[in-house]
Nucleic acid binder design. Structure first.
Lengths: 233, 233, 233, 233
DNA sequence: AATGAATGAGCTTTCATTCAT
DNA sequence: GATGAATGAAAGCTCATTCAT
């Protein structure tokens, strides 16, 4: 049977084609099955990376047949893109709430750091990032959208909080964005790299995390608090 | 391994088989040709990633024939492993010298940061990391050896310096390792992530880098200097 | 392994891309093997048609491996195109010579008809045409080039001959092209359709062919000879 | 058969299974829907050919679901066979009437030629033939039945007419069948091949057709009329 | 009776690896 | 030792056919 390459409808062939709405095809009506496929794809893509993952692997993991996948998604790339789009928003929701009801700078920073570090350590944000990094040259837009949500938005959430603290006179800095970046790096940078680089065999102990965050908070406040602040040990 | 090998004779199938000595096998006599192949492989693997790179690409880039590669290296994986082994030490050499002749803490930190940030921004350390991250589940040991050298050793170099400064009474901290990590994150974390995530279209301007490093140095010294230190802006 | 669709070099994706030179690829040097593949492809394509023929069939028939075919030809379509290009000239060579040394109109017509009918009946011109007709909508240019050679050129060869006979006063017509077409249809039309339509189980007997040609020659000369000509039976 | 069927129950696997009665199976009650499916199938099969046409295309064109088609027809092949059976008689009806009320040989021939050429040029007889030719090796009987009706029967209709003209003394030939074939080739052969080979971009002008037919009639009568007949130009 | 989601064999094509030269 | 043509397993994807609804 001929391979009739009649897919002309794709406007941007090499890049993620759906700006807002996630991949939805003529048929492919059942959202439950769609999720099921994405769940299987998530297992496979995050473990193997995009290239090493085969559609047969997805088939096996998702418990559906090859044809079914292609009813819901146009191609392997499309499936991957839909997966990334689904995952991208999952990581910043929690952070915003945490800072909303924090009045005290020190308490807010600590709670933000705890939440962010937990994400880095416990969730699959980092495996997802690794997977995305593998195809960054082939699908830059898709990767950008993912990355802009996961770590960058965390920064903007914290930046807003710092601005409010500056307005209230609790902190002092002329570059809230820089300060926000610095706090994120201080509090999570080490864990982030460890996890990204696969050097975190088991999650670090609670007290290890606490000590690290405590130190980050102190260094940060030592530098940016308007009140004198005891230097960290 | 992507292409499932039909051969069973491999004793350690999933991990880098050469513990210390880089790939050296039956023949493969000419070290110059060996380097030539590795140079070609480096171009290809770092641009495409392990899976997307084909041996034909390496062939073309290295200017040798397919058969020749297989004289010097057992398999694609072996070639990749040898490449990573060769590259793993390249990034920390310079840093040690920089700190060797720095007496002043502030000057030392600044010079370390400048050198490290330059590596992050200008060298192919980050592309190499991305490539390694793509196969971290398949070759954990190999990746670990690479990563332990590139960024981790930078940290240990800085840690030694901080220890000396503590001994000399210029800095105060009970956790030089933590302090070293913090300074690296403060000074390079943002650039590191930007470059890793492909969001650094053009290298940041010199003054942008200077400002960021300056701020990092101040935050750090504000926290760890034994002398009072003006807070950063 | 990823399917890296990096074939950007193709200028005209759906149509035969090689105007004059038959498909020749970077490598693929051995002309003998190339012919061997084309021979296998000919068997398969002419028996099954383009779509129903599988590359595995070609593989089997040609006695080479799948990969080898793709060293010599870029795609199934390219292989088919190369085959058609190879076959297209094979059918008109003989006809020209036949008419070159025929002085007498009647003798020339008879010998032309015999040669042309033999081609229709005995060679694989008709199976080739059937195969070409199956893809005429997908590869119009390729098909045109084939058809323009096989039957159309036969007509122009005969037309030249008729013109010469008109000049010599042996025939009379104001439309040598029409006359040529008519003679071809008269002499071969029936056999052509029979063979094309698969209704020619065994080749017609010599006397059957002779009778048919004789009748065609007579009808034609009856109409176009300058001399009175006995009507056919 | 393209897609090798897993089922073995088919008694006559390679050829059209319904000798006379068109496909009528377990259910498939509604003759209107049956026609609707065949109409859709006709569009698709004649445009794409048997292999390149997909059942989904038929589904879309016919406006019925996949399952419904399989209620009325056992397989793609069966649907195709039923279509061909339905179409096979369509092209000879008109010709018989035309000759029934023609007394004069010249007038009869001209009207026959006009009608037949119109069919060749304007109807989908030729696309249908092309479609049939594509599967002639797989379904010889079916194709034979179709082709025996369309062009061959036209010939037998004309043959009867010629016989009558011979009986009336207007024409003279000992082989009315040959004469009939010759007239058909003379009058339509060129147009037939042009259309079949896709070289008829737009229908030829009326005067072009007229001139061609006129010439054919003259050549024919010149050869077979019992009265002296002026030679064609 | 009608639907269309699901299946999976089979398609074209790629590429790591081998081996005759 | 070096070459690159040849191999064939496995990839992404299609589509005739089935069957629960």
């Amino acid at each position: 049977m001929t391979r009739k390459s009649k897919k002309v409808e794709q406007s941007a062939p090499t890049e993620f084609p759906y700006p807002v709405v996630p991949s939805r095809f003529p048929a492919g009506g059942d959202p439950v099955k769609r999720e099921q496929i994405l769940d299987g794809a998530k297992q496979v893509f995050m473990k193997m990376g995009f290239d090493a993952a085969s559609m047969n692997d997805v088939t096996r993991e998702a418990g559906v047949s090859k044809g079914t996948i292609y009813v819901y998604f146009q191609s392997k790339e499309d499936l991957f893109a839909a997966l990334i789009e689904r995952e991208k928003g999952r990581f910043t929701e929690a952070l915003r709430d945490i800072l909303a009801d924090s009045q005290d700078a020190e308490q807010g920073l600590r709670r933000f750091a705890e939440a962010f570090v937990r994400q880095v350590i416990e969730t699959d944000m980092i495996p997802a990032m690794r997977t995305v990094l593998g195809v960054i040259d082939r699908m830059p837009g898709l990767c950008h959208r993912f990355l802009a949500n996961a770590p960058a938005n965390a920064r903007s959430v914290l930046e807003d909080f710092i601005r409010r603290q500056v307005d209230q006179g609790a902190l002092r800095t002329e570059h809230p964005e820089t300060a926000a970046r610095q706090f994120i790096e201080l509090s999570s940078g080490t864990f982030f790299k460890q996890r990204l680089f696969g050097e975190m065999r088991h999650a670090p102990s609670q007290e290890e995390v606490d000590r690290s965050i405590e130190s980050a908070v102190r260094v940060f406040l030592c530098a940016y608090s308007t009140r004198p602040f005891p230097k960290p040990l």
